[in-house]
Design a protein around this nucleic acid. Structure first.
Lengths: 209, 209
DNA sequence: GAGAGTAATGACAGCTTCTGACAATTGACA
DNA sequence: TGTCAATTGTCAGAAGCTGTCATTACTCTC
């Protein structure tokens, strides 16, 4: 598992990720070419494309890792709780593990700045949304499994997850648009938004209650 | 407004759209080159890129038109109703106008097949999601305006629209995945999903109620 | 209805992303 | 050490997209 060859691969992959993110953050995504990235790591362009299917993939790598961690935590927890509360709980529980996993790969600062680059770069945002949709689909199936419901017949898991993910994205987006740099602020905002889901859908909008 | 030059432009633009969609539907999006499209309409490649910023844009043109019609209807209606019910109502009211607008540009069949191509082509789906997000943002501001709320302070419009759009997308996606071809079926499914939003969020999941 | 002015188009050269093919290198393992 | 397989580099090239500039097509005025 940890042969020299394996370690070397890991190193070049990580180096490519960090180099790419640094360039993206400083120059912008579109303005940095793959040639610039590979030059920093001193590998050929062809090698880059063996590690990452396209330029987007290297930009979204850390994000994908994060959502995978969340998904796996969702799968691991005990069933029984009402789904919306359960998802919120897992979100709360995984927050720290996510931070640690990110830092093992890249400086946290860099990752937070990269989040903003993703939100503000059209092509990257598009790719990110698609990845989120794939994750959404997996979450639907997991929620359906946990509630003992057929996801192809009963729309409730789909609807619930769509609302949950939609709200989460709105929170992250809002956070990064405000130039957020602290993880704590992001967490607070997400929590706040989540708390508003039920009231927002249930109405009672005339006054602020 | 309707000079010869103007009409000619409209014609070539429409011809490019229809030709492109036909090729996308028969050969797939990735497999068709811009050269093939312009050959069908007999214009230069450069002309294509003057009408559409990129290959994606011609594929999403009709979709964008549809969502614009919906948005404008939302803006036009009288205020006062609870937002979720209002959005559902507008959706119901615009359905026919949308069908007519589409048919004025391209065969309805072609458009429905194109919807499926969008859902099943990763790069297209990504671009489509991004466009949806832009529309979502506009809807947020409009809902906030109608309810007399500051969208940068009060998260409720964001949350509500995120849930609404998320559910709509889930419905369309589900419909196209099942190989849907009838507009009626899509409408019914969307209506069904919408009705499930409140119960799904509110819980009471133990049994089917 | 002829001519000046402007908008649209075509032709071409060039950049960037990404892929296929094959040779060269490097680590794994007997 | 030598063989095998995985990884990499090099090269050629397709496709998306852009800038530039000459040419064509429409419009508007006189």
């Amino acid at each position: 598992m940890t042969g020299l060859r394996e370690r070397k691969k890991q190193r070049t992959r990580d180096a490519l990720i960090v180099a790419a993110h640094e360039l993206f953050v400083t120059q912008g995504y579109d303005a940095t070419t793959v040639d610039q990235i590979v030059e920093m790591v001193d590998v050929s362009q062809r090698t880059f494309f063996r590690y990452f299917a396209n330029k987007e993939e290297v930009a979204l790598f850390v994000q994908d890792m994060v959502s995978t961690i969340f998904y796996e935590a969702v799968c691991a927890g005990p069933p029984g709780e009402p789904p919306l509360e359960y998802l919120r709980g897992v979100l709360d529980d995984t927050w720290e593990a996510v931070g640690e996993a990110v830092e093992a790969l890249t400086p946290l600062d860099l990752h937070l700045k990269m989040c903003q680059v993703i939100e503000t770069t059209p092509s990257l945002l598009a790719a990110h949304l698609r990845h989120s949709l794939l994750m959404e689909e997996k979450l639907v199936r997991e929620v359906a499994r946990r509630t003992g419901v057929d996801p192809d017949q009963d729309p409730r898991p789909r609807v619930l997850v769509a609302a949950f993910v939609g709200v989460m994205r709105a929170a992250v987006r809002q956070w990064s648009m405000r130039g957020g740099v602290s993880l704590k602020a992001a967490r607070a905002l997400t929590y706040d938004y989540m708390a508003q889901l039920k009231p927002a859908v249930s109405g009672g909008w005339g006054r602020t209650d």
